[in-house]
């Protein structure tokens, strides 16, 4: 019994304590120190600052419903969507009647708002995180006419803005072409300060 305490229980307890200190305190502290010094903006959430105020994170999508803004993807995060404190998806299965109803409703709404035509699938399906900051270029193109009309500017001007915020796959194959909705809308509002590009580029 003494031997058990000394050779089994004691090492177990003490190892847990020591390893907790190393991996649970020293390790995150070290990473935090490096992160805060080397990559301060990213380490603190890639916040987008407008006039000294954070208006969001370039990585986190926001709910848009105003016709003058590009709309992001349907979100199941939180009660009303885009709750960045309660991420998540619908978890509806592929044969869920509810899912099909949701998509059908979203298609009707999108067609009504944007003037018909097949809707790019990302505009009518909920993202995984509920905070997806991006839409596909097709989904942006689908909304160009509406945004241009609401803002009273030419479609080409809107398209130019979309192009500015379209990121192509890394090395041509890694990831999908995508448009950051928040940055695009900020740009359209004329609020985008230089330098607040996509996070990957700022490192």
């Amino acid at each position: 019994m003494r031997s058990f305490l000394r050779h089994v229980l004691l090492p177990a307890v003490m190892l847990l304590v020591v390893l907790t200190l190393i991996t649970g305190a020293a390790y995150p502290a070290l990473v935090t120190a490096v992160a805060q010094i080397a990559f301060n903006r990213q380490a603190n959430g890639s916040m987008v600052i407008v006039n000294g105020q954070a208006v969001g994170s370039s990585l986190i999508g926001q709910a848009f419903s105003d016709p003058k803004y590009f709309w992001g993807r349907p979100s199941a995060a939180g009660r009303d969507g885009y709750d960045a404190g309660d991420s998540g998806g619908t978890n509806l299965g592929p044969t869920s009647a509810q899912l099909i109803a949701n998509v059908t409703a979203a298609v009707e709404a999108a067609q009504k708002a944007n003037g018909g035509g097949p809707v790019p699938v990302d505009l009518v399906t909920s993202s995984a995180s509920g905070l997806d900051p991006d839409i596909s270029p097709a989904a942006a193109e689908y909304q160009v006419a509406r945004v241009a009309a609401a803002r009273g500017i030419t479609r080409d001007a809107v398209r130019a803005a979309v192009a500015r915020h379209t990121e192509q796959p890394l090395l041509g194959f890694l990831g999908e072409p995508r448009v950051n909705v928040l940055e695009l809308n900020l740009d359209l509002d004329g609020l985008l300060s230089p330098g607040a590009g996509t996070p990957g580029a700022s490192g």
Binding site: R73, G89, T90, N91, L92, P94, T95, L99, I100, V103, T104, V107, E108, Q111, P118, V119, P120, V121, D122, V124, T125, S126, S127, A128, S129, D132, D134, I135, S136, A138, A139, G175, E176, R178
Partner: peptide
């Protein structure tokens, strides 16, 4: 099963997926 008005030829089954990954 998605309705005909959905264009999923390029992106596929995006329910529960992120746009940047596909």
């Amino acid at each position: 099963l998605f309705p005909a008005g959905v264009d999923q030829t390029v992106l596929g089954n995006m329910e529960g997926k992120e746009a940047r990954f596909g």
